[in-house]
Each structure stands twice: as C-alpha cells, then as structure tokens.
C-alpha cells in the first residue's frame, strides 16, 4: 500500500473583483492531480513558477481545504479531516517551506521554534527537549549557540536549515520539501541533500521533493513529475525522464538548465509566449497553446489524462507530443 495517494486533487482560489470584492472567477492553482508515493520513496516535482507546486504541497499537509478530489495518508482519507483528527497526523506529515521568512516566527528564538513541535505534541520533559534541540541543530550543521538567537540574525541559507531542523524534529514519515535547497549554496546544498538522503535511509522517510534545480531533483528522486499550469503533464522514473523526455514542456525545461561552464554558454531556446494564467486557462493542452504549436487544436476537447507509454512512464497524450 502506498503511504500517500492523491486522486484528482483540485485546489481553487476565488478571485475577487469589483467594489464588493465578490468572487468573480477562480484561480485553478491545482487542477486535477493524481499520484501516489511509496514508503521510503522520493517523488520529485518540477514545473514553472506559479504552476501550483506549493499549493499542492500545502493541500497535502492540509494547510488548505481542497476544493475536490482526495488525499489518503496510510489508507486514511484526510481530504476534509478536521483540525482535531489531523493533530496526531501532523506529526507524520511535515513541510519545509520555500520562503523561510514566511514560516519562522521572528519573535521566537531558534530554541522556541524547534521546541514547539514537541510541546504541541506533548512529548518529552524540558531537559529532554533541550537535548533534542541541540541534536537537531547539530544535524543541520548549526552551532548549539544558535539556539538563543532570532531568525533575522541568520543568513538566508542558515534560516532554511532552521526550517529543515523543525521539519525533521518529530521524525515524520513524509516531508513535503518545497525548494529546500534553492536558497543554499552548492556546498551547503550538498550537505543538506546528503542529510536528507541519510534521514531517508535511517528512518524510511518519504519525500515529495519540489525544486527547480533539475540536476538536484534528478539526484534526489526515484520518480519525477512535471507540472504545468495545475496539472501533471509527465511522470516517469528519474533517469528515464531525463534520457527520454516526451512532453514538449519537459524538453523545454531540460533545455534551460544553466551549465556551470562559461565556455558552454549557449543561445538558449527560451520559452516564448505569455506564461498562461491559472485564472483563465486555455482549452486543450495549455503548453501547446502557449507555444502556438501547429497541432495544438487537435488537443482541444481531447481526453488529456496521463497515459502509460512505457513501464512507469506516463505522459499527457497528444498527437503531436507523443
């Protein structure tokens, strides 16, 4: 049985306008996403800014109330579970947030921040908690003296590590890692990635690993899902996806990776066209629409649910792409 199963998940936000701030339209941030995640597995999630990755993550940890679809964790339906039913579950599903400034209370010291999960879950005595905080800081490579300082006294990358320490505090089963290393330099980045790999090996953790660094995602993931405008357009085992991308968007993404070699500067095939808006998504294949793909019209009205074209390799079907 898989640890996490997401079926046809939708997360829409009302768009307000006019004098009365009435809801005039809806922003379909996540629009029919399905996947499952096994124990000890890492699913990478990549996609253009604004395509709904963070929203998907927040829906799974239930910081949002999904509009439709379902989320099952260890077989239990948590799609609409109340705060009370969720509390014991929270221990097992954690999230590392993209913008540490958004998630760390600036008026709390690092010790307060790291102790809080234990206090909420009523675990441990004060001296035990003190010891655990020190261990956590050590795990993420911050000095014990850091615990008396406030988040603003740290650099961006150091704050990101405080967020990681908090997420792993309760030894969860699943962590939604939302761009966990994009604020980190390569050296600390490799340390943090090594740390996440170690934790996975030692505690059998599962990760939903959101990142825009495609080399990083490839390095961390068993399978990778590519998201575009609220939908998954391709999903495959990591190496397969990189060697054999099928969807035009996946190909464009792979093409845009900046190579760390100044002699290989290239005239990149930049993605042209307006980035579509989830407020008024075009019909049919949204990427084809943007690229003014000659065969785009064929995708209008077509059933675009993912099809398996090779073992474990799913792609949105379209006559021109696949």
């Amino acid at each position: 049985m898989s640890l996490l199963t997401v079926q046809n998940l939708q997360q829409h936000f009302p768009v307000r306008g006019g004098l009365l701030r009435r809801s005039v339209a809806s922003c379909k941030a996540v629009d029919g996403v399905s996947f499952s995640l096994g124990e000890g597995e890492t699913l990478g999630l990549v996609g253009e800014s604004g395509c709904g990755k963070t929203t998907l993550g927040k829906a799974i940890v239930r910081l949002l109330n999904p509009t439709a679809g379902s989320i099952h964790f260890e077989g239990q339906d948590i799609t609409h579970a109340s705060m009370r039913t969720l509390r014991p579950m929270r221990r097992h599903i954690q999230m590392i947030f993209q913008d540490p400034a958004e998630s760390l209370n600036p008026r709390h010291t690092v010790r307060d921040i790291l102790e809080e999960p234990f206090i909420v879950q009523k675990i441990g005595t004060p001296p035990e908690r003190k010891k655990w905080v020190a261990e956590l800081l050590d795990k993420v490579g911050l000095s014990a003296a850091s615990s008396d300082r406030f988040p603003f006294e740290f650099s961006g990358g150091q704050r990101q590590r405080i967020g990681i320490a908090r997420a792993i505090a309760l030894k969860p089963k699943l962590i939604i890692c939302d761009e966990p290393v994009s604020a980190l330099d390569v050296s600390v980045q490799s340390q943090v990635l090594n740390l996440l790999l170690d934790l996975q090996r030692d505690m059998g953790l599962s990760y939903l690993f959101i990142a825009h660094g495609l080399n990083v995602v490839k390095h961390m993931s068993d399978r990778v899902a590519v998201m575009y405008l609220g939908k998954i357009v391709e999903l495959a085992p990591a190496t397969e996806l990189y060697q054999n991308p099928r969807h035009a968007y996946t190909k464009a993404l792979l093409d845009a990776i900046p190579i760390a070699d100044p002699t290989q500067r290239r005239e990149r095939q930049l993605l042209r066209g307006d980035v579509p808006s989830p407020i008024n998504p075009p019909p049919g294949c949204a990427f084809g629409h943007r690229m003014k793909h000659p065969k785009w019209e064929q995708s209008v009205g077509m059933d675009l649910t993912l099809k398996e074209i090779a073992p474990g390799h799913f792609v949105q079907p379209c006559p021109c792409c696949t």
Binding site: S187, L214, V216
Partner: peptide
C-alpha cells in the same frame, strides 16, 4: 566549490561531494 556542483550525469541518490564542515559563524 566547483567540485560540489551536482551534475546532471551523476548517480542518483548517492552522496554528493561536499566541502566538509561549515562556514564559521
């Protein structure tokens, strides 16, 4: 620094090369 860049052709889920230790506070 140049050696710790994760490469697109590296083996997945293997430990990356990293400069040991941390920048001192």
């Amino acid at each position: 620094l140049l050696e710790s860049i994760p490469r697109i052709d590296s083996m997945p889920k293997t430990q990356l090369k990293a400069i040991p230790g941390n920048v001192p506070g």
